[in-house]
């Protein structure tokens, strides 16, 4: 059954193609993640995403070197172009 579905897939980006128009989760360099609706991508993994929620994960350190609990900053963007060199992974957003 799965082989049948795999027949049309010959390269990794063919799988990304399946996520076109769907909400995806993207992990980026610099401790960022985002979810949004994937509109377009290319071979460099440049992405165009809409209705984006971007999360920036950061850990603050006190003056004496003690890490504070991880902090997440979020922001929402209507439409976003993501440059491909920052993309670590793309996955369908878990529903």
């Amino acid at each position: 059954m799965d082989e049948a579905a795999n027949a049309g897939i010959s390269e990794p980006l063919d799988l990304v193609k399946l996520a076109l128009g769907e909400r995806v989760f993207v992990k980026l360099r610099g401790d960022r993640t985002l979810t949004g609706v994937l509109h377009a991508y290319d071979a460099h993994m440049n992405l165009v995403v809409s209705q984006v929620e971007e999360s920036i994960h950061s850990v603050d350190v006190t003056d004496d070197g003690q890490p504070l609990p991880p902090r997440v900053d979020r922001r929402n963007v209507d439409m976003l172009f993501v440059r491909g060199d920052g993309v670590i992974l793309i996955s369908p957003a878990q529903q």
Binding site: D2, A5, L18, A19, E22, P92
Partner: peptide
């Protein structure tokens, strides 16, 4: 159909 099949 699985989700993947649907998408394909």
């Amino acid at each position: 159909l699985t989700r993947k099949q649907v998408m394909v």
